[in-house]
Simulated scan of single mutants.
Amino acid sequence: MNNSVLIKGLVSVVFFASASATSLYTHSEEIRIPVGSQGENSVELPNRGLSSKQLLSQFGEPLQTNGPVGSPPISQWHYDGFVVYLEGDYVIHAVRKPKPQKNSASE
């Protein structure tokens, strides 16, 4: 058998096998939340960079905390209308909690 044909065949097999394996790991899901249900705009969010002491001083005790988890350590502090994410002792992000969906069947 011709060596160039054998090499082309092997290259094709390797290419298609790697393309198939890659497609297994590239799946993504898009989640859409209507603008009206993304949380109350009137809810003040803490600024990035606040220390946990400053956060407690401005917003009080959280209703619930999760973590820290991972490296660097990430914690979640849950307040009534939002969740604050801390890396170590500092705020890195805050997000509003979605509004509860109204059930149109009960209206």
Rank of each mutant, 00 (worst) to 15 (best):
residue 85 Y to M: 10
residue 44 E to F: 14
residue 64 Q to D: 13
residue 82 F to N: 01
residue 47 N to Y: 08
residue 68 P to Y: 02
residue 44 E to L: 13
residue 40 E to M: 08
residue 91 V to C: 10
residue 99 K to V: 03
residue 44 E to Q: 11
residue 73 P to S: 08
residue 93 H to I: 14
residue 44 E to K: 11
residue 40 E to Q: 08
residue 74 I to D: 03
residue 93 H to E: 15
residue 63 L to H: 01
residue 39 G to W: 00
residue 78 H to G: 03
residue 69 V to P: 00
residue 102 K to L: 12
residue 105 A to C: 04
residue 44 E to R: 11
residue 57 S to F: 15
residue 52 S to H: 11
residue 57 S to K: 13
residue 69 V to H: 07
residue 79 Y to W: 15
residue 99 K to S: 12
residue 83 V to N: 06
residue 47 N to K: 15
residue 102 K to S: 11
residue 101 Q to N: 07
residue 52 S to A: 13
residue 99 K to A: 10
residue 43 V to Y: 14
residue 51 S to D: 12
residue 95 V to Y: 09
residue 42 S to A: 10
residue 75 S to D: 04
residue 64 Q to M: 11
residue 97 K to I: 06
residue 41 N to F: 10
residue 56 L to Y: 05
residue 63 L to I: 07
residue 101 Q to K: 09
residue 96 R to A: 05
residue 52 S to V: 12
residue 62 P to I: 04
residue 55 L to G: 10
residue 94 A to F: 14
residue 44 E to M: 11
residue 55 L to M: 13
residue 95 V to P: 00
residue 66 N to L: 12
residue 82 F to Q: 00
residue 66 N to W: 01
residue 98 P to R: 14
residue 74 I to S: 03
residue 69 V to K: 04
residue 99 K to C: 09
residue 99 K to Y: 05
residue 51 S to F: 15
residue 77 W to V: 05
residue 82 F to H: 03
residue 54 Q to M: 12
residue 44 E to V: 05
residue 92 I to V: 13
residue 54 Q to G: 08
residue 88 G to N: 10
residue 57 S to G: 13
residue 39 G to C: 13
residue 58 Q to W: 05
residue 52 S to F: 08
residue 48 R to W: 13
residue 59 F to Q: 04
residue 46 P to T: 11
residue 46 P to H: 04
residue 80 D to G: 03
